[in-house]
Every structure is written in structure tokens, then in C-alpha cells.
Amino acid sequence: MNKSKEKFMAAVFFASALISILAVGLICVFLFVNGIPALFKIGTLEFLGGSQWSPMDQPAYYGILPMIVGSLYVTAGAIILGVPIGVLSSIFMAWICPPRLYKWIKPAVDLLAGIPSVVYGFFGIAIIVPLTGNSIVSASILLGIMILPTVISIAESALRATPRQYYEGALALGAGPYRSLFYVVLPAAKNGILAAVVLGIGRAIGETMAVIMVAGNQARMPVSLFKGVRTLTANIVIEMGYAADLHRGALIATGVVLFVFILIINISFSALVRKDRG
């Protein structure tokens, strides 16, 4: 009686462990099966390299290059704004911050991570858009803020993992505290910091709602940093509601492209983390 119960539960535990494999498998299958035929029908080159997206026109054009470029622009902007501030903040938190202040700043960063994207988007509409319009710049600023907690927490743990002797050795050789941090501790944590940047890229490129609310979403090649742009994620959400047939397929294929980007980013992230562990 007891023995069969043991066996049964062991099987249940085992089956549960397989669920994540099953989930990834299903996600891949359903995205690819629904997206790839449209990709072939449109033509891979026209789809990925076409600079015109006008699915409602006759004839319809399904080029997602504007959205690929748009995603890259806002992501690059977010990294340029978010990474320096995030890395400097993480240095502060890991090495400089007095413990009494840390008790406040750590929950604050966690809270920044917990704020829902729509609330960020709302904030963007009310504060950032009046200044810089529905534009690449607005989306970059907002995403720059949103990736801060990701960058900070990963960079912080990488910085904490560098041995204290490095810092003390540099001090003993006559370097000032900040010179020791920036020339000895920071380079030692290089891989971890890079991993933080990569994960930040993943967050920024995958962010949807906040970007839709501030980026303007015009499906055209970006003309200026202060003009609107549409990202891959926005393309899916905006048109999925009414798309049919090939148009719908093209949107799913947009998801496939995004998915492949994310997979590449994830692989580089885990490679960096592994390298960091030696």
C-alpha cells in the first residue's frame, strides 16, 4: 500500500518536472506551425527585408523591417540611458552605500521592478510624451527606466561576488577608493555586468504595453529620433485584434522573429553567466 503510494507520487513529481519541457515544446510548435507558412507565402526576404507594412492595401505589403529597426532603436536607446545609470547605481549599492541607506534603496529597486508596465506607460503618457512626443526618444527613456531594476540587481550580485581583497589590494597600492572600484572591481565583474546588459536588452525588446503607449506606433522606417516608431511587440498587439488569414499569419511570424531574437539573447546570457562561474 505504502510502496505503491511512494511509486505513484514519484511518478507525479517526475511528470511535473516534464511540464516545462512540454511548455517550451508547445510554444515552439504553435508559433512555428502558425507563423512559418505565412513567412514562406510572403517570401522570407520580402518579409524580413521589406520596408513597407500595409496589410490592408491592395496589393498588401508585409515587410517588417520597420518594426525590426524600430525595436532595435528603442532597445539601443534604453541601453544607452539605462545601463550607465544602472551600473553606477549597482556599484553604489554593492560597495559604497552605508547599510542604513541600503535598507531603503534595495526595496526601492525591487518596487521599481514590481510596477506594472501599464503604470509605467501611463506615467510615460503624462510626463514624457508632453516633452518629447510619441517618439523613439520617449520610448527609450521609459524603457531605460524600466530596465533599471534588472540591470541593477544582476550587476549588483556580480559586483558583490568579486573578492574584497581585490579592492583592498588596490587601496594598498595607493589607488583611491573610486579608482579601485572602477579600475579593479568593475573589470573583475565584467562578465556579470555584461550579463546584466544582455538581460536588459531582453527586457527592453520584449516590453510591449508601455512602449505602445508612448512610441506612436507608425509602421514606417524611423525618420527621426523625435518621430514615432513601431516595435515588433507593438505590431502584434495593435493588429492581432482584427487580423485574418495571411495578415494574421504575418503577425504570428512577427512573433516568431521576436521569439528567435529572445532565444539568441537568452543563450548569450546563459553563456555569460556560465563563463562567470568559471
Binding site: 511548455a23 508547445l26 508559433l31 520584449g206 516590453e207 498587439v237 512573433g255 529572445i262
Partner: peptide, 28 residues
């Protein structure tokens, strides 16, 4: 091997953006 596959897929899941989940949920 199985454990590393479980870990790999779990890591993959944690990196997938929510819009992809939404798309998958819609399709499946």
C-alpha cells in the same frame, strides 16, 4: 541529461516576454 534539459527549458521560459505568452495562449 533530463535534469539539464528541464533547467534549460525553465530558463528559456523565464526569458520569454509576455507578448509571446499571449500569442501562444491565443493560438493554443
Amino acid at each position: 541529461k533530463l535534469v539539464s534539459l528541464v533547467r534549460l527549458t525553465t530558463e528559456t521560459l523565464s526569458g520569454i516576454p509576455s507578448i509571446i505568452y499571449g500569442l501562444f495562449g491565443l493560438l493554443f
